[in-house]
């Protein structure tokens, strides 16, 4: 009973295959294939980001312009988080040291810790917290709605945990690391668990792909 249905469905599919193969070959010759990645999810099309106005750990403005001109790895967390955040930040410190050792790296990416707990994470607090993991790291905080303006565009979510104390509350937050390209566009994300060697390899591959496809 079912068989004829299936065959009818299958035949047009078979006919499409040569066309698909042809298309693959053509694109293969004209544009480089997206790289094989070990941990990163590369966006099919880089996503432009709308401007936002935040503040870095020295009290200077940090806006979309600060994401331009170099690659950026961004993590979204809070300083009162003792497990996941320091683990990810230490891991990013390792990434930065590994990249620095690799002669093919060129300019190091900037690594930015965006606070999702601006109530407690002042620029002063970030100034002592963030450089602990690597002296090049940048800490960014600011008005809650400006942080939301950025995170909403990236699919980063977070929220205070109900029921925890007034000053000792926990914050649930996305654990992903976001990669921005030198045009300040959202290019890729790294999901947990993070492995520094994978992030380094993927970042180098994405950079090469970016250069080859510009």
């Amino acid at each position: 009973m079912l068989k004829p249905e299936k065959t009818r469905f299958f035949l047009p599919l078979l006919a499409i295959i040569p066309a698909l193969l042809g298309a693959l070959l053509l694109t293969g010759c004209s544009a480089p294939e997206p790289p094989e990645l070990r941990q990163a999810t590369l966006l099919p099309v880089a996503k432009a980001v709308a401007d936002f106005r935040l503040t870095d750990q020295a009290g200077r403005p940090f806006t979309l312009d600060n994401l331009k001109g170099r690659w950026t790895l961004a993590f979204f967390g809070y300083t009162h988080c003792p497990d996941v955040c320091p683990t990810s930040m230490a891991m990013l410190g390792q990434v930065q040291r590994n990249l620095a050792k690799d002669p093919s790296t060129g300019e190091l990416p900037q690594v930015v810790f965006f606070s999702v707990d601006p109530e407690r994470d002042t620029p002063e607090l970030l100034a002592s917290f963030v450089p602990y993991f690597h002296d090049s790291f940048i800490g960014v905080t600011g008005a809650a709605d400006e942080i939301l303006k950025l995170t909403r565009q990236l699919g980063i979510i977070y929220g205070k945990v109900e029921g925890s104390g007034s000053d000792d509350y926990l914050v649930d937050h996305s654990a992903a690391i976001i990669l921005f390209d030198p045009e300040g566009r959202f290019r890729a994300l790294f999901n947990i668990p993070h492995k520094p060697e994978y992030i380094v390899a993927d970042l180098q591959a994405i950079k090469q792909y970016y250069e080859a496809t510009r």
Partner: peptide
């Protein structure tokens, strides 16, 4: 025990 980064109020 993870050494607390400066400013961190919680340890693990």
């Amino acid at each position: 025990v993870r050494e607390a980064p400066p400013g961190a109020r919680m340890l693990a």
